[in-house]
Nucleic acid binder design. Structure first.
Length: 263
DNA sequence: ATGTCAGGTCTAACCTGA
């Protein structure tokens, strides 16, 4: 089975590209982030015509996550236990559309969009750390089943995962606290599959649209699939599809694909 | 070049978020 994660940065703006890639790459399950739409706005027909079912969670034009599958899709939940809420100081806190879980092809798949953090002194940064810590505590309960925590983690775990740690825009992605929160999933029984199978340094999954980052080769590896040990044991390879950053109409992220030997 | 996108609105000019 091929299981992928991709921050599509608006599924409406890119449905052709996403569905084309799904078919071309022979991907069975795709966890999407930043679909940026409500359920009634999701381009469902294009996915269904290609043979995929879709489960999604979208509340407004921000965030939004989905899972497309052609190997079954069941037991959908749209937040994880303890998932923190966030709101501006004068607004009611809201549990945002940043997580969806479903069972597909015998694997418990989570599509996750970790908060960006915005800045080290911004309340969004404390929210990011709280989200990661709550997710780890929830995920510890799922570690004995084949479980994939797939998504945009908004963390560059090592100095080899970013073109420049001094880049001001990346402060929330390289901070000690963010990196510790990311690394703690290993203590909870998970293996980051892209690192195991693609250890090459400076192999990125995201390049900002600004500053000609892609042609300059200035990116970050921030999209990951953490697998429980039972899933890691049957994962045979991982690919980062750099070509999907090319050309007009590309997302700023590319797909990360895991090859899984489902018994 | 402050070298980009996407979605929104009190829309053809600006706002938020990334």
């Amino acid at each position: 089975m091929r299981l992928a994660t991709w921050n599509v940065n608006s599924v409406r703006a890119r449905s052709d590209r996403v569905v084309d890639w799904l078919q071309r790459s022979d991907t069975d399950v795709l966890a999407m982030q930043e679909i940026k739409c409500k359920p009634e706005q999701f381009p469902l027909a294009a996915f269904e015509a290609a043979g995929y079912e879709v489960a999604l969670h979208g509340l407004n034009q921000w965030n939004g996550v989905a899972i497309a599958s052609r190997v079954g899709l069941s037991d959908v939940v749209t937040q994880f236990p303890g998932q923190p809420a966030f709101g501006k100081p004068d607004a009611e806190p809201l549990v945002e559309a940043r997580a969806i879980g479903a069972t597909a092809g015998g694997v418990r798949v989570w599509s996750l969009y970790v908060p960006n953090g915005r800045g080290l002194t911004d309340p969004h940064y404390a929210y990011k750390l709280a989200f990661l810590n709550a997710l780890r505590e929830a995920a510890a309960e799922w570690k004995d089943a084949p479980t994939a925590l797939a998504g945009d983690w908004n963390v560059a775990p090592t100095s080899e995962d970013i073109w420049s740690e001094e880049d001001a825009d990346a402060a929330t992605h390289v901070s000690a606290a963010a990196r510790e929160a990311f690394a703690s999933f290993a203590d909870a029984g998970y293996v980051e599959l892209s690192r195991r199978h693609l250890p090459e340094p400076h192999t990125y999954t995201f390049w900002d649209y600004q500053q000609l980052r892609f042609p300059r080769g200035e990116g970050m590896r921030i999209d990951f699939i953490y697998g429980s040990q039972p899933l890691a044991d049957i994962t045979t390879g991982v690919t980062i599809v750099r070509d999907e950053r090319k050309g007009k109409g590309a997302s700023d992220h590319v797909p990360v694909v895991a090859e899984i030997d489902v018994p």
